[in-house]
């Protein structure tokens, strides 16, 4: 028995060293790629942040209310969003909220921009999807702190590594939901379109995408909610925003600060959810 134990524990499989070796190799040879990526993402973050922070808060609030009405056609939702923002302004978290919104929006752009095309491609290749699924599981279940380490190594401290960590965690959601939506397009609808002469591209845009739209919009909603859940973790790698006061409150055991900033995050989450809830007009 002892010898058996020794056999198992005698030679440790070098998982940790392996990962380290990969990351070292990437920093050594793919540094330029990461720098370019970082620069691109930093530019996007700066642009979004500028749009959100340059105008007077009331102008931003009005714009969000108008957007809410345009999307949902309900005065109540529009008014609720206005009240939510006024509450945030009242609590003195306006700037942090805009920084977190920037992170969420940037994550949305990247995740939907990558997730929807990848989801479509996987839906059309069921066998590839079977291979990719474990990778998606890994991205979602690997503790977030673990991939914060290489994120810092590659991208330093700030909003960009926060964004990267967020994207890795969130990306599987839009991929999965898009794949589900496209793959569950009723075969009868596909067949009807093909019988009337649809090309593969027409089939995608005129049948599969409209049919998958509810799932894709759920994917967007999930992307936003999951991104928001990452703001505290992003704060650990130096991303500014609502996570910063939460982390500070935790470190100084400051109940008041913790609840204030926590509640603001909840308010932001509710507002974004209501803003982008998808209802099929029937």
């Amino acid at each position: 028995m002892e010898r058996l134990t020794e056999l198992v524990t005698g030679h440790k499989i070098p998982v940790g060293q392996g990962a380290e070796w990969v990351f070292d190799w990437l920093t050594a040879y793919a540094g330029a790629l990461f720098n370019a990526l970082a620069a691109g993402m930093q530019a996007m973050i700066d642009a979004i942040l500028f749009v959100l922070t340059a105008p007077h808060p009331f102008a931003v609030i009005a714009a969000f209310m108008a957007l809410a009405y345009a999307l949902q056609r309900r005065v109540l939702i529009s008014a609720g969003i206005g009240l939510g923002f006024l509450f945030i302004l009242n609590q003195g978290y306006w700037h942090e909220t805009m920084q977190s919104l920037t992170l969420v929006l940037a994550a949305c752009v990247v995740c939907m921009g990558l997730g929807v095309p990848i989801g479509i491609a996987l839906a059309h290749r069921p066998r590839l999807y079977a291979w990719v699924r474990p990778l998606l599981d890994l991205m979602q279940t690997l503790p977030t702190f673990v991939y914060l380490i290489p994120a810092i190594v590659f991208f330093g401290i700030g909003m960009v590594p926060g964004l990267i960590a967020t994207v890795i965690f969130v990306l599987p959601a839009p991929i999965r939901l898009t794949q589900l939506g496209i793959a569950s397009t009723p075969a009868a609808l596909r067949e009807a379109a093909v019988a009337f002469g649809a090309t593969p591209r027409q089939l995608l845009w005129k049948v599969e995408m409209p049919s998958a739209l509810p799932q894709i919009m759920t994917g967007l909603n999930q992307t936003i909610m999951l991104s928001l859940s990452m703001v505290v973790i992003a704060a650990l790698v130096g991303a500014s925003g609502l996570g910063v006061p939460v982390v500070r409150a935790l470190n100084s055991v400051n109940t008041a600060l913790g609840f204030e900033s926590g509640l603001v995050i909840v308010v932001v989450a509710i507002m974004l959810d209501r803003l982008l809830r998808f209802r099929r007009t029937s």
């Binding site: 009868a188 609808l189 379109a193 409209p210 049919s211």
Partner: peptide, 8 residues
Amino acid sequence: QFGLLPWR
């Protein structure tokens, strides 16, 4: 089963 596109 008609095969009509229900969102149209």
